[in-house]
């Protein structure tokens, strides 16, 4: 899957889950600071991402994913190592 496609899917999920406008979401967007996503929001987001891309996001990785870009990079790496 191309990185652009991953990015688009991630943005769609983020917008739907967190009820935000697509215009507000870029690769630099921070989940906690910019979108106000608390730990529960982030846990729910992880579930949707795992289902959409059929991957597992390791719990120790969750803490390091701060931005939409971090998430896209992580997914990209997971898909490539499959």
């Amino acid at each position: 899957m191309a990185s652009e496609e991953i990015q688009k899917k991630v943005c769609d999920i983020v917008c739907k889950q967190l009820e935000v406008d697509a215009a507000k979401v870029s690769l630099e967007t921070k989940f906690a600071e910019d979108l106000g996503a608390d730990s529960l929001d982030q846990a729910e987001l992880v579930m949707e991402i795992e289902d959409e891309f059929d991957i597992n996001i390791a719990e120790d990785a969750e803490g390091k994913i701060k931005t939409v870009g971090d998430l896209v990079t992580y997914i990209d790496a997971q898909l490539k190592s499959k």
Partner: peptide
């Protein structure tokens, strides 16, 4: 079980 919402309890 891994797909039960984390918002269940609250």
């Amino acid at each position: 079980p891994d797909r039960v919402t984390p918002f269940l309890i609250p």
